[in-house]
Design a protein around this nucleic acid. Structure first.
Lengths: 145, 145
DNA sequence: AATTAACAGGACGATTTAAGTCCTGATTGC
DNA sequence: GCAATCAGGACTTAAATCGTCCTGTTAATT
């Protein structure tokens, strides 16, 4: 149903939270802030660090820092960092050759135009766009159990 | 990972196949043509019929017929017919109220712009676009085991 | 120098979701 | 009357994902 993973949702929340913190933020700190279990947040941050969306500092008093400005991070990048390359179907040009039933492939249509359209759409949306109307009246992030 | 269901894939194949057949086509016939189990094809066609993408004729010598031209059927419609409304996350305006953790929702960002962008992209692609480069040289649909 | 705090990376189990199948009923042509 | 076909739903099975945990590495503090 064209859904994206929940981890991507957490990633957005974590990045927005990181932008709020001026300096570094630890994964347990972010976890408490956004109301998500710590191991899960840690996993998400690790994936984001792998793509360079956040930079990490190890050791005591270490933590994560935003790699770029929110306006320079696209939704597509986040999805790629968390879930891998964007491909709606297994039958795309990227995975050419793996489609064993190519000779009698039931997919008469090519999904490539769809994939590129989706990819373009996601690349034109930045985190800044999402964070804009992010906080409805009376909604405070600091309120966490 | 932003993938769509395999049934949607079958739906496209079935619709393209339907456009090839001048008259009506039965679900077992289509199943044999595209190399997909009959019950599965039947399920897909029923969903498509529910959205008016195909018209059905009951009784002996009945079958399915294409509801509109290929150029008038968008990818978005197919996805909606098979998988329901297009919503990347559970936190969209459509399902407002069901989000119980709204007061402390970790999703600081709004996915609505993303959803609408995806929806627009899918509505601008018709089946005719997909069927265009559908058949590479030497690829014949009739070749089915 | 030892200890503590925090990231890095991978592997594992459990839950959830989707896929595929089957059944019964209604309708139409021969 | 009989056969063929669609309509609709429920069920079982399989797969992918979520979430957690464990171990190792790095750096600041005492």
């Amino acid at each position: 149903m064209l859904k994206l993973s929940r981890l991507t949702d957490y990633a957005v929340a974590a990045l927005v939270r990181l932008s709020a913190a001026e300096g570094v933020a630890t994964s347990p700190g972010i976890a408490a802030a956004i109301g998500v279990p710590e191991p899960t947040v840690a996993k998400v941050l690790k994936s984001l660090a792998g793509q360079g969306l956040v930079t990490s500092t190890r050791g005591a008093r270490g933590g994560y820092r935003l790699g770029r400005k929110l306006s320079d991070i696209t939704v597509a990048e986040i999805i790629v960092a968390i879930d891998g390359p964007i491909a709606l179907t297994s039958c795309v040009e990227g995975s050419a050759g793996t489609c064993e039933s190519q000779t009698l492939c039931p997919v008469a249509g090519r999904w490539d135009p769809v994939n590129t359209a989706i990819r373009d759409a996601l690349q034109n949306i930045t985190l800044a766009d999402m964070a804009q109307a992010a906080l409805p009246p009376g909604l405070r992030l600091s309120e966490v159990a």
